[in-house]
């Protein structure tokens, strides 16, 4: 069972991520109406939002320390937030500003914050190898730091995933693989992309325990992830966790979602995981509505400040494109 502090931490992280994504959805449309032009506006380019997937981030990262490494994919904001990435500089990066994490070079799919050992990439499943490598480094250095590799259920069919799982299993490295199963890889449903229904069963093939967390349940994931992280820290090797989660928005902003059954999103929203966690917290009796509201308000204020910071920031000079190619 999570402690009161852990519950509040997860709740705050989830509220922060949700509000961050909903704000981004609005900001992203600035300068794209009535004609939607992907290259126009305050935030141009592709935008993959993770509203609905907050449990995957909070339920795992609550067990982590700054020295633990997290790699995330193209849909990274919720995980970055839960890992403690600098929110002002992350937002400035997404706005393409000079004070962004990478001075505007990376954008939303390429967020790097070495202070908390967070990195993400837009190539599907590409974070799995580096997570294994960070775990190997920790082992060689004699530290008890661990790695968490986030991928989508679609990425579980990519070759890199299988190679990395085998390496981690073979060398008994401290890695936790988290598969966020939001049921879709862009327009392709899991049933049309994956030969088995429960991807966590694949863990057996790589000599590690596999866990399946049903229906976006934050508290169930908290338990399973706690076990997997502790096992990794003890030096007993990797684990694989698949979490059934929800994708509220389209694959990217601008996705017409013609493939999506009518009513699917509404049905998912009716069992929203943040609402569920809040209800469970309050029913547990240890946390009052005022405490929860304060956490939520704090989260939203921090997000508002991050967007204000990003808006006010300057763009980089064009010639800065030529720097930082080499170390």
């Amino acid at each position: 069972m999570p402690s009161k502090a852990q519950l509040l931490w997860m709740y705050e992280a989830m509220e922060k991520a949700r509000y961050y994504e909903d704000t981004m959805a609005t900001v992203y449309m600035e300068g794209k109406q009535p004609k939607f032009d992907i290259g126009a506006g305050t935030v141009p380019g592709e935008m993959h939002l993770a509203a609905g997937q907050e449990p995957c981030a909070a339920g795992v990262c609550v067990h982590l320390r700054p020295e633990d490494t997290v790699t995330a994919p193209h849909r990274p904001h919720h995980v970055a937030i839960a890992k403690g990435v600098d929110l002002n500089r992350m937002t400035a990066e997404i706005f393409g500003k000079k004070s962004g994490l990478s001075g505007g070079r990376g954008g939303h799919m390429h967020l790097f914050d070495p202070a908390v050992n967070f990195a993400c990439s837009g190539i599907i499943a590409e974070g799995t190898g580096p997570a294994v490598g960070a775990a190997l480094a920790a082992k060689l250095k004699g530290s008890d730091a661990i790695s968490v590799s986030y991928i989508g259920e679609g990425a579980a069919n990519q070759g890199a995933t299988h190679e990395a799982l085998n390496l981690a299993g073979l060398w008994k490295l401290p890695v936790v693989f988290v598969i966020e199963d939001n049921a879709w890889g862009i327009s392709v449903p899991k049933s049309k992309a994956t030969a088995i229904a429960d991807t966590s069963q694949r863990a057996a093939g790589y000599g590690m325990p596999g866990h399946h967390v049903a229906d976006n349940d934050t508290l169930a994931l908290f338990e399973v992830a706690g076990e997997a992280v502790a096992r990794a820290r003890r030096g007993e090797g990797p684990s694989l966790i698949e979490v059934e989660t929800y994708r509220y928005y389209g694959h990217f902003q601008g996705d017409p979602e013609l493939y999506r059954p009518k009513g699917e999103v509404e049905a998912l929203k009716a069992k929203d995981p943040i609402e569920r966690l809040r209800k469970a917290m309050l029913e547990g009796g240890e946390i009052t509505a005022e405490e929860a509201d304060a956490a939520r308000d704090r989260a939203r204020q921090e997000v508002d400040e991050a967007y204000a910071f990003a808006r006010a920031a300057d763009y980089p000079a064009p010639e800065e494109a030529l720097t930082h190619v080499f170390a």
Binding site: G96, K97, A321
Partner: peptide
């Protein structure tokens, strides 16, 4: 493109 990866931010990308 000068031998750098394509940067994200609009002014830098348009520059390369």
């Amino acid at each position: 493109v000068p031998d750098v990866p394509i940067p994200y931010s609009r002014p830098m990308e348009q520059f390369v």
